[in-house]
Design a protein around this nucleic acid. Sequence first.
DNA 1: TGACAATACGTGTATATGCACGTATGCTGG
DNA 2: CCAGCATACGTGCATATACACGTATTGTCA
Lengths: 147, 147
Amino acid sequence: MNQRLSQAQKREIAQSCIHAHLKQAVRLVTQQFDAALSAMDIRATQYNLLVASSLMGTVPLTVLADELGLDRTTLSRNLKPLETRHLIHTYLSDQDSRVRLVEITTEGERLILDAYPLWKSIQKEVTKVFDDETYKSLLNQLEQLQS
Amino acid sequence: MNQRLSQAQKREIAQSCIHAHLKQAVRLVTQQFDAALSAMDIRATQYNLLVASSLMGTVPLTVLADELGLDRTTLSRNLKPLETRHLIHTYLSDQDSRVRLVEITTEGERLILDAYPLWKSIQKEVTKVFDDETYKSLLNQLEQLQS
DNA sequence: TGACAATACGTGTATATGCACGTATGCTGG
DNA sequence: CCAGCATACGTGCATATACACGTATTGTCA
């Protein structure tokens, strides 16, 4: 006996697994944001990346990755399509040739400006289903995960 | 003028974008779960997939995808490595040769049993940072996103 | 019964994600 | 000064995700 999980245990996992629920939520939210931003031919992940880059100015790849809580190699690859479109510019540092510096271009600045109403609109839309209290608590609690 | 977003607007996006926050949360939680389950050489996504399959018995691919809120083609590809490892078995239906049926194998059942303590442990760990009220509200409110 | 709509699926393409591994560069102590 | 450690990065590999497009099969109605 005991070769299988009980049905109750299976249901426990399926119904309460926080990883599964969060992932599902992200899939939904990503689709909403991507659809909204598709008019500017940009994705939610990319939009956030551009904004972060704009906020940080000229910044080493690794520093930007840390700021975003992203793996260095992931960020590196995420930048590729943006650099191809000249929304981002990267180059090796003069002081330390190991370091790749990242900065947003004028076109990139222009795009985040133009896309802002789209972001604002879908952000409002999606946030509507959350009451403010829950959302604030959520953000706070997510912070704790970092540590 | 007005060629750029104001710093305030950039900060608004960086600090409040629900997509960015959820995605970040998923990255963190995924790493926790993946690390915990790595002893069984399985990932969180795969574990949830196996459990869902086990719960549903023999089931058409599309039905399972709908149940999981996953794109059909995503599920199809996610099943590949599991089928290679003989944790999942798929075959075309006799009644309707368009339909691919999915079912967990005995080995698959065995794995979700063996991995259960690992899942339980990390689930407990991660859930600690959420208070129950917020988490329940969140799940409820995410449901509304579906519609 | 046969054209046409509906259904189910696979593949191509593109992005997103992170680990392991190797390379190049900078730094530092003996 | 230089041998070795530390740092920064790129690439290979594997998974995760979804859309667009094409194909095969089923069902239906005139």
